[in-house]
Amino acid sequence: MSAQTPILDIKNLSVHFRVYGGVLKVLDGIDFHVFPGEKVGLVGETGCGKTTTMKAILRVLPTPPAVIPNGEILFKGQNVLKMSERKLLDMRGQGISMIFQDPTSALNPVFTIGQQLEAVIRHASPQNHRLSRSAIEQRARLALREVALADPDRLLNSYPIQLSGGMRQRVCIGMALSTDPELLIADEPGTALDVTIQDQVLRLLQRLVDEKQKSVILITHTLGIVRQTTDRVYVMYAGNMVEVAPTKRLFAKPAHPYTQGLMAAVPRLSGGGISEGIPGRIPSYMNPPVGCRFHTRCPYAMPVCERLKPPVFTVDDEAHQVACFLYDAPDKVQAYKQEQVAV
């Protein structure tokens, strides 16, 4: 795995928002990477910066108010933050596609499915621009058939309101895959749907990306979905990546106190009562706590947590990393402390 070069590599990325009354330090030096063909989960609660991260990757954050003081985002070796408009369009057209949480607001209600789908295919690349109308329609039909929608001809002439929620989300998936992207970002793809329909949509998504060997980033706040769909998981808390591990290992042996708290908070189908959850609340981004951003809610908080931002430590091996002083190896922390003092 480590021999491969990642298709997406985010290094030490920070995103701040300048707003009236101060600066919101939302992302605080995150590292994140995706290998070709890998399904990566990104879990965290509301407001932890999941969507901001994805918007930064596609460079669709409104600037201002957003500012990116440091970090780089490498997509296939090229820095997205320094790309020209032309290259950005190519990347969004053919490189990365996105599926949104709510298919109802992702589709335009006044255009037919066909018009929207064909526009996506036509504008995906300069070559597609030169295709004939019938060729594009052909590809649109194929895209719908791929997501297991029967009767694509009728669908192409339907408006979004004529479809059910599950069908709309399938259309969105078909649309995202119609341009044959290398990386697919799915932002809570099932949350707006009912459980049984969500299950169908996720299974479809999984089958398609496995067949086509796409890389996927699945953003969600539901741990169960990550467990059944992904290979590797990043856990995010208040703009920090707190833990990354292969999915199986994360669920068997969560290392970071936040991950542990989150897992304990999920009500179980096996019963056993309701856990109290994690005390306190997500800190304000205007004045985030100094040191570890979780220390105000952490049951194991130590004096060092209030002073220093925890570096990344490894648990067992390189694949499982956690940003918490509990996993401190003495020699590493010494070097880190010196570095912090120097800064």
Partner: peptide
């Protein structure tokens, strides 16, 4: 049965 088998869960036990 369909509903129960569709729920995403977080442990083997469940």
């Amino acid at each position: 049965q369909m509903l129960l088998s569709s729920i995403p869960v977080i442990s083997e036990e469940e």
